[in-house]
């Protein structure tokens, strides 16, 4: 019962905030909606027992990535003209309808085809230790490679965003 309550609460707000991210006009509002969305998503992770992922999700996403968005928004300080969207054209409505219908259909077919049945997924026991073990043994190379990727991204973004002399 309490599980249901928690899940539906989280899911409802996640859905709302997702919609908000893509529909609101003000980028700051969108960023805040995104923060809420990601924060609640971390809640879903924790709810499933993935504590460590949840913590990382909050630290990295809300603590760094979205802050970066906010920074950029504040630095750009867009004028209202910029924020106005043009009136959607007919073909856009059409495409929207097709996309939603397509997703609904694909999702339905996919979920329908899952032969797992309606098994309740249990919460995982405390698994930080195991995650660490897997990460630093089986996935050591990907881990190192990703760290190099991050380094490249740092250098790249500094190089791109630097003021030209």
């Amino acid at each position: 019962m309490s599980d249901q309550l928690v899940f539906w609460g989280l899911a409802g707000f996640i859905t709302l905030s997702s919609v908000a991210v893509v529909t609101v006009r003000n980028p700051v509002t969108a960023a805040v909606a995104l923060v809420i969305n990601l924060f609640l998503l971390a809640g879903v992770y924790a709810f499933q027992g993935a504590d460590f992922v949840a913590a990382i999700q909050i630290i990295v996403y809300t603590g760094a990535i979205v802050v970066l968005f906010l920074f950029v928004i504040m630095i750009l300080n867009l004028d209202p003209e910029h924020l106005r969207s043009p009136r959607p054209r007919i073909w856009e409505h059409l495409v929207l309808g097709v996309v939603i219908a397509g997703f609904a259909y694909i999702g339905y077919r996919f979920l329908d085809s899952l032969d797992v049945g309606k098994v309740a997924s249990n919460r995982l026991p405390d698994n930080t230790y195991d995650v660490a073990m897997i990460l630093f043994s089986n996935y050591l190379w990907p881990f190192e490679i990703v760290s190099i990727l991050i380094l490249l991204a740092i250098v790249g973004s500094v190089a791109i965003a630097k003021k030209p002399k």
Binding site: V98, V99, F103, Y105, I106
Partner: peptide, 16 residues
């Protein structure tokens, strides 16, 4: 992007 997504969806629908 629209063409890409529509094409992708078309492919997936075709497959399933």
């Amino acid at each position: 992007a629209v063409v890409f997504i529509l094409g992708l969806m078309g492919l997936v629908v075709l497959v399933i």
